[in-house]
Every structure is written in structure tokens, then in C-alpha cells.
Design a protein around this nucleic acid. Structure first.
Lengths: 184, 184, 184, 184
DNA sequence: CTCTAACCGAGACGGTACGTCGTGTCTTCTT
DNA sequence: AAGAAGACACGACGTACCGTCTCGGTTAGAG
């Protein structure tokens, strides 16, 4: 049963190299060399580069988001969005996150990791919306998932497809627009 | 200046292979074999797989969107979103589009293609918003780019990150939510 | 000192595999799998594939020759040669024997096994020649070792280097030629 | 059509390494490194280690034998045998020759090389026997192939299986014995 | 209607990484 | 004491593409 003895070393090397050389520059041989482990050892435990990346990311909790509780939905959403924007643009996190999300579109293995993560995060965000409903900040019939799609999607499009880091003003603007739609 | 005599063949083979075997399965050698052209001929004209892909996609106008004019902003936006959703999920288009957008995150060359495309499309969408302003469907101070970020981003997140094809009801819901925010 | 408890199983598996897949196809891992023994167990008792092969062959007495006593040197030699030819060409024995003799040329360990075997067999053949001397079938000054070199060598060259199985007529011819030289 | 540009380098490296590290120590990667050629280049032209070895040996004419014409069959045969003995025991040639002959027993590809060589050499030796017949040194009904089998086989058995280099006295003894059988 | 420049095919190559197999070693746990 | 179980470093395997180079042909438009 057991598992790889040097798993931590291997995961660490994987993420280091990912940030340094990017998804395509990342090779199993490179990870082996960096982690001081033999190539075959990696193949023993992970069937593919993607599987390795996936487990490294899960273990490292790369996409971790602190769930805010600021007292208002507006504050909570702005906090969330700023964190997402930081993940997508921060020098440390951006290579890893974009690699993951980029590859997820054509790599079933990583797609699954991402889907699981999004489902899980949505579950953890629900209380935020429940608090908002109790405070009367949200009219009935608004699906939290849709709200998160809109806001996270906007930041994502801005940062990665338009190539414009989402600044605080932009975050406020999008949250404001969506919140108006959620109350009116 | 000129250009490759067999450019059309090569572009066609590129897109065919892209849909068949995906971004990573796509190789210059494969394109050469499929298009009946020698490998060196491809290298003569395109410095990289991404450059080739980029030019093939531009030429094929893969991301083409018909700009609607339905008489109402709601109708226009729903039409746009449905088209985007179709691109992201259609059996013919999805492999190409996701390959492009996935690779764009870590491939400067393709990122540039995407950014240019988005900027251009936004420009072509502006008249739609100007008509809406004239019709009084949009309060002042709403940035069309932000609206498109929100809506396109939501569809994108749904389709590619959550793995749930955006159905018509979802499209209506998001447009409704955003439009409420645009008028209130 | 002791010895492996499962030595017989291991030896059996070794020879089976040798006949099935040949010298180069024979692997320690294969022997372990076939004999139901752990790889480390084999390494505990034999330092190398060759050592294992050597001991398996010695134990199995693969090169065993019945020493004939037909009443005449001609009959004795023909009997011996036929046995050698059978060893070199028989479907069961040939893979083992040729593996051993082939490897002996560049594997000290197996070379030693072979040399010991040849020396031993010569010793057991000597009485045959002594009987012949007593019967006056052999002039003085003929070295039995040379006679055996000539005859065994001829069969060996035929069978393995020329790729022509030595037929009975051939055996008779060579024995006749050498015997003429031994009496004249 | 063409062929490998660096064929000579590769063949040279092959034979050098064969003498230095033996048949089993010889690797394609080693040959590539020694010859300054890339591994794939070797695989482009030779499907296996054996094929490479075979062509290297054919080209190098490793088993070359000068055909003597001393005026007597005895002289011719002694010359031949001394050459064979030298091939089998000389510091330069022995590794190559024993590797070839050892591997020939279980490597079809090399077996074919050896068989072709022996057939060819026998053809070139025939005139020697025809001269002997004309001189009356050979009775009718003696097959030259058998004579060569006996003599070459004896030297071979001595050198490689008994591990005793065949000295001149031994060569004379075997030739004498066989020649007696050929005339009586 | 040629001639010349642009383009192409072919063949060979050095190179990186792949994913696999087998080696021989080591430690720990089980009879 | 012997063996089973599992992890490992290591070396080589044979393969796929990469990107580059040289050489010799083909094509097609400008003179």
C-alpha cells in the first residue's frame, strides 16, 4: 500500500519547475533531476505529467481561497474577487494557476481536478450567500453559482484573455453591477 | 513577401489535425504528412507550432461571431451568448476553441492572437451598446467591456471549468441578472 | 552455508525459461516470477545470471553423455559423436547447450563450467582409448584429447557454425577419416 | 538511396568497443557516444545491435584469412590453422571473433553472417584441395569440407572450450593425424 | 518564351524527452 | 535463518518529434 517515500520532494520539485519553466517546459526527467529521484520512481507512482501536476497542486492547495465574512455581501464578494485576481496575476501563483486552468481545457485528468475544486469551493461559498439572504441583500431566485460564474468569469476573461490585470476599481465595478442585478 | 504556395493545404491540415488529435497531439510532422508537404516547407514559413496554429485560426475565422441586431439589448446579448456557448461546446468548434484559449494562457504567441481578437470583437460590439443607450436600455456609466466580460466569462467558466454546457435557460438567467444591474 | 530452500524450483524455472526464450531473454525477474520466488531470494544465492545458469546446468547434467563400450573404437566414437550431435540439435537440448557454449566464450563464469566439464569428460573417455590400445586399434603416440578435439570440433562446426545438422553419414565419414589417421 | 554519412565512424567505434568491453558490454548508446554520432542516427540505419555488429564485421573483414599456397597440402593446412589459431587467441582479434562466434549460436542475424562467411571461405579453400589432388596428396572420396571441419573444429574446441591456446606443435599434430587419414 | 528568383522535396543529422525493462541493493516485515 | 514485500538508483532500451542543414529540382512571372 504505502506510497512513494519521496513524494514530498517530488511534489515540491514539480511546482518549482512549473513556475520556472511553465507547463510545456515541465518534464518528468526535469522533475526527477530536481528532486534527486530517479525517473522510474516518478513513473511508478504517477502515470503522466498531468497526474503528477494534479496531485502536486491538490497537495499544495495552490488554489486556496480564504472565505471572507466582512458583514456585507459586497465586502465578501470584493474580497473573493481580489483574491482570485491575485491568484491569476501574482508572480508566484500565476504560472501555476494558468498552467492548471489552461491545461484543464484539453486534459481530462486536470479538468477533473479543476471541476472538483470549483464544486468544492462553491459549496464553501454558499454560507456567504445564505448570510446575505438573511440580511436581505439578495432577492429570491438568484443562483449563487451564477453570481460566482459572472464575477469569477469576468476577472478570468480580463486577466487571461484580454491580458489586463483586474485592478481594484474594476473589481468594485463588476461587483457593483452584479449586486444591482441581485437586488433590483 | 509572397508566402507559401501551399498555405491553404497546410492550414487546412492543421485545423483538421487539431480537431482530431488535440493541441498536444498536433505535430509539425503530422501536419506535413497530412498536407502532403515537406516538413522543411512548414518550418520555412512558421517558426513554431503556435505561430502556425495562430495563422490557421485567423485565416479560418474560427472564432467568428455574427453580430445580432434584434431590436433590444436583451435579444442582442442572448444571441451573442448563445453563439459563444455554441462555439465552446459544438463538436466541431470546441476542440479548436478550447485549444486556442487553453494554450493562450501560456503561449505568448497565441495569447496575442486571442487578445487581438477580443479587442477587435469588442469594437464590433460597441454599436450594439450604443443602440441600447439610444433606446434607454442602459444607464450611464456602464462599461460595455465589463458587461461582455461578465457574460462571456460566465459562459466560459460554466462550459470549461465547471464542465457544464450552458443551456438556454442559463443564458437567459445571466443576461437577465446583468441587465437588471445595467438599468437599475 | 545451507542453500536456498527453493533451489530446485529456481533451477527448473531457469532451464525452462532458457529453452523458451533463450539466453538473452532469460532474466532474473523472469525466473523469480516463474518459480514463484522473490527476486531478492535469487540474488541472495547466486551473484549473476551466469552463476545461476551454471549451477542449474550442472545440477541438471545437461551435457550428460553415456560412455559407450561397443567392443570397437569405431563403434565407441560413432556412439559418442551421435550423442553430441543429438545434444547440439535436439529441440530440447539445443537451446540450453548452445546457450551455454555460446556464452562460455565471453563469460568467464560459464567458461569455467564448460572447461571443467570437458576436462572431466575427457577423463571418463580415456578408458575407451586404453581399451582401443589394448585391442591394437590405435598406434602409439596418438593423443586421445586431440582425437576428441577433432571429432567433437567437426560436429560442433557443422551444427553451429555451418548450420547443417550432422547426419549419421557425416558422423561415419569423420570417424573413418580420423581412425585411418590413428592406425596408419 | 545513399546511406549513413558517418557509417565508417560508427563501424569503427563498434569494433573498438567490442574489443574493449565485449559483446554484452557493447551498447548502442556507447557506440553513439564513442563515434560522436547521435543515438537516433544509429537506429536509423541498423535495426539492432547485431545488425550493426554484423555489418561492422563484414566491412572490417575481421575473419580475413590469407589463402596459402606452399606447394604441399600439409604446408597449406598448417598455415591456415595457424591463422585461425591466431584469430582465436590474438589480443586484438579474439574479443571480436569470439563475440561473433559466441553470439552466432543464439542470434539468427549473426548466425547468418557466420554461415555466409564459412560457405564463402570454403569456396576459396577448394583450389587448395584441388591442387593437392593433382599432386596425389589426397585419396579420392575425401570431402574438403569435412577436413576443414575437423581441423578448424579442433582448434576451436581447444582454444575456446578447453581454454588452451593451440600451440604450433598441436597444429602440426592435428594436421598430421588428419593427413594420414586422407592418404591411407 | 525564356530566365531567374522564389519555392519546394528529399534526405540526413544532432538533440531532448519519452515511457519501459531489467538490474542489483536496501530495509522492513513475516514466518 | 530464510524468505516475502516493496521501494529505490541506475543504465539502457527503442521511439517520436524537434529544429536545422544541404542539395537538387520545379514553377511561374517579368523581361
Amino acid at each position: 500500500m504505502a506510497g512513494a517515500r519521496r513524494e514530498r520532494d517530488i511534489h515540491a520539485a514539480t511546482l518549482e519547475l512549473l513556475t520556472e519553466v511553465g507547463y510545456d517546459g515541465l518534464t518528468i526527467e526535469g522533475v526527477a533531476a530536481r528532486s534527486g529521484v530517479n525517473k522510474t520512481t516518478i513513473y511508478r507512482w504517477w502515470p503522466s505529467k498531468d497526474a503528477l501536476l494534479g496531485s502536486a497542486m491538490v497537495e499544495a492547495d495552490v488554489l486556496a481561497i480564504r472565505l471572507p465574512d466582512t458583514g456585507s455581501l459586497r465586502g465578501d464578494l470584493e474580497s473573493l474577487l481580489r483574491q482570485i485576481a491575485a491568484l491569476l496575476t501574482g508572480p508566484d501563483t500565476s504560472p501555476v494557476v494558468t498552467a492548471l486552468l489552461g491545461a484543464a481545457t484539453h486534459r481530462p485528468e486536470l479538468g477533473e481536478v479543476v471541476r472538483r475544486f470549483f464544486a468544492d469551493r462553491l459549496g464553501r461559498e454558499l454560507p456567504m450567500f445564505e448570510r446575505a439572504v438573511r440580511r436581505g441583500e439578495l432577492r429570491d431566485g438568484v443562483d449563487p453559482a451564477t453570481v460566482m460564474d459572472l464575477l469569477a468569469g469576468a476577472v478570468w476573461v480580463r486577466a487571461l484573455l484580454r491580458g489586463q490585470p483586474p485592478r481594484p476599481a474594476y473589481v468594485r465595478e463588476t461587483v457593483d453591477l452584479v449586486l444591482r442585478g441581485c437586488t433590483s
